[in-house]
């Protein structure tokens, strides 16, 4: 895990003690071998394409990221200033591993890469994201996605 001792004090306390939703069920959806799966990413970094307006604080919205988008024009607009940006400055894949997925598909490790990926503002109350979860799930199913990588920041 991220070493809690490496996280500055107030942020360390916040991430370690934050209220998290308790899920009453423990769904566990099976699927085909990885080499047959269509994989999508959901990032909590509030990513935007250059020129788009940043996410509002506390927004429960989701935004699409097209597979064909230029990854070097994707920016973090997350409200928090207490996580690293230096890695992402050098390489978007450290946050949003779209190029890694594309190469894994070429090499046959996964079946294919989804046409559309999604991003949300990770600090938002999950209760405000229900509509977004419904929307993303429907979109992924329409694109025949059967594997989702969740990449928080």
């Amino acid at each position: 895990m991220a070493r809690l001792e490496d996280i500055p004090g107030p942020t360390r306390t916040a991430v370690a003690t934050i209220d998290c939703p308790a899920f009453e069920t423990t769904p566990f959806v099976s699927g085909p071998p990885l080499s047959k799966r269509r994989v999508a990413i959901v990032s909590s970094a509030a990513l935007i394409e250059r020129g788009d307006k940043p996410f509002d604080f506390g927004s429960g919205e989701c935004r699409p990221l097209q597979r064909s988008a230029n990854a070097d024009d994707i920016l973090i607009s997350h409200v928090s200033i207490n996580f690293d940006r230096a890695g992402y400055q050098r390489d978007i894949n450290v946050v949003y591993p779209i190029d890694r997925l594309k190469h894994m598909a070429i090499d046959g490790l996964i079946g294919s890469v989804a046409n559309t990926h999604y991003t949300v503002m990770g600090s938002t109350d999950p209760a405000a994201m229900v509509e977004s979860a419904d929307f993303i799930a429907a979109a992924f199913k329409a694109d025949h996605v059967d594997a989702v990588v969740l990449a928080p920041v």
Binding site: M1, A2, L4, V15, A16, T17, I18, C20, P21, A22, F23, T25, T26, P27, F28, V29, S30, G31, V42, P126, M129, V130, A133, D134, I136, A137, F140, K141, V145, D146, A147, V148, V149, L150, A151, P152, V153
Partner: peptide, 26 residues
């Protein structure tokens, strides 16, 4: 939330206390 909607998920987890509370499938 996506797993509840029928999609298999796996998370790159950064904070262990949050994983212990939410118990994601993978």
């Amino acid at each position: 939330m996506l797993e509840e909607r029928g999609l298999p998920t796996t998370v790159l987890a950064l904070v262990l206390p949050q994983v212990e509370k939410t118990r994601p499938p993978r």
